[in-house]
Computed example of a mutant assay.
Amino acid sequence: MRSGGGPGLGAKLRLEDVVTRIGAFTLGPVNLEVGDGEVALIFGPNGAGKSTLLKTILGLYRPERGRVLIDDVDVTNVPVNRREVGYVPQSLALFDHMSVRDNIEFGLKVRGVPKEERGRAVKEVAERLHIEDFLDRRASELSWGQAQRVAIARAVITRPKVLLLDEPASGLDPWSADYLADLIVYVRDELKVATIVVSQYAGKLLRASTRLLFMSNGKLYDLGPVERALTSPMKAEAAAYLGYDNVIPCKALGNLCEGSKSLALRYSSVQVGEAPCDGLQLKGWLEQIYADVDGSLRARVDLNGVKVTGLLKGKVEGRDVYVCIKIDSAALVE
């Protein structure tokens, strides 16, 4: 999958220079490709345009310019119900008065699929997603995690070419989020559906994803495969969403790196106190010491006008402290 460049062979979904305007907000231009069996995880702040992008792909919003292609067919002006796109909104949008079974088979029923064939399809997807025990319950009786599985089952039972998941991890406890990741892995590896997941934070669904993209102010930035994106997030704003506690402008570090860029570091790569240093050692002003949930002590330091968080190591006397930065574990970002 690529988010820029010319047309790519084998892309199930392709967006070419898509621009969508909703009121004063502008999305794009967006260039994006997602292939079969790929999971593109798009993360970023609220209001960045993530849901607008999904609704443009789905056909709920019509782009002002550009094209949306599925299997190399231009579907920009094709109605929602003819795009072969599965969609799970953040609200899930289940029919509360209907049973789980009726919710799941709804898409097949409106397509005129015979009852016996619908029954086989529901049985198969229910077993795959472990929801066979409550097929006859009303949707209103389900927990949020159960309802989410039903919504995904309803989206994939029609065998869409593209699957869109809008904030699927929102409101889930850690166990449910981990189970959700398993479901996405199933869609990725077994169904081979080209999938886009949008989320404010990437952490809960990283293991199910093949590629990370960051969205901010209507612009989409391709960070590359997950492994590369985690070690080299490219954008300073994206680094903060990927667990980097510190983004230090190069100008605060002397001539260490290009002045217009910054170094992104996790707190474990910054040590505060009089201890042996195997990196760059600077002096800073100690602002705060506090305990983390794992029992370790963290220190908040003013380093040449930049607030930095690190591990407290060694002796500290007074407010003037040594700060050791492990440069080899830093990522250069813009």
Rank of each mutant, 00 (worst) to 15 (best):
F106H: 05
I289C: 09
C324S: 04
K115T: 07
G107Q: 11
T309E: 12
R159G: 07
E227G: 13
D292L: 15
E167F: 02
L332K: 14
L172G: 08
S216L: 15
E116T: 10
N304R: 07
D102R: 14
I70W: 11
R300E: 05
R14A: 11
K315E: 12
L54G: 12
L163C: 04
L165S: 04
R67Q: 09
L41K: 03
G171R: 10
K55R: 14
A208L: 11
D178G: 15
V39C: 10
P249Q: 04
N77Y: 15
L265V: 08
G66S: 01
S170V: 04
M215A: 02
K219G: 08
A93D: 11
L164D: 08
R298V: 05
A181I: 05
G49F: 07
Y179I: 14
G224L: 10
I104F: 04
V333C: 11
R21N: 08
V187E: 00
P7K: 07
Q271R: 15
P45E: 06
V113K: 03
D36G: 02
H97Y: 07
I289V: 14
L165C: 05
P45C: 14
P79H: 00
E334L: 14
V306H: 05
F106Y: 12
I42D: 04
A239N: 12
G10C: 04
S3Y: 11
R120A: 15
L58Y: 08
I289S: 06
V110G: 01
W175A: 14
A93F: 03
S140Q: 02
W144G: 14
E16W: 02
N103C: 08
V39F: 01
V85G: 09
V80S: 07
R207M: 11
L253D: 02
I42G: 03
Y61I: 06
K12V: 15
N81F: 15
G35T: 13
V270Y: 03
L205F: 07
G107M: 01
A239G: 01
T210Q: 04
E64W: 02
L165Y: 10
L27A: 13
P114M: 13
A40L: 15
E84L: 12
D71A: 10
V197R: 04
S216Y: 15
G35Y: 11
V316T: 09
G119H: 03
V306T: 08
K204G: 09
G59P: 10
G145K: 06
A126S: 01
G28M: 01
G171S: 08
A155Y: 05
F95K: 00
I325A: 09
G112P: 00
V270A: 03
E16G: 06
V78I: 02
I131M: 10
W175I: 15
I325W: 02
T195K: 05
V73D: 10
V78N: 09
L223V: 12
C277Q: 03
K50A: 12
H97E: 13
Y87N: 01
L94I: 01
W285E: 15
G314D: 04
E287M: 03
R14N: 00
E33P: 05
K55H: 05
T20C: 12
V150F: 03
S296W: 13
A147E: 05
R298C: 07
K307H: 12
R298G: 14
V88S: 03
K283W: 13
L286Q: 09
R83A: 14
E64I: 06
G203R: 12
A121D: 00
V125Q: 05
G35V: 13
Y244E: 06
R138V: 07
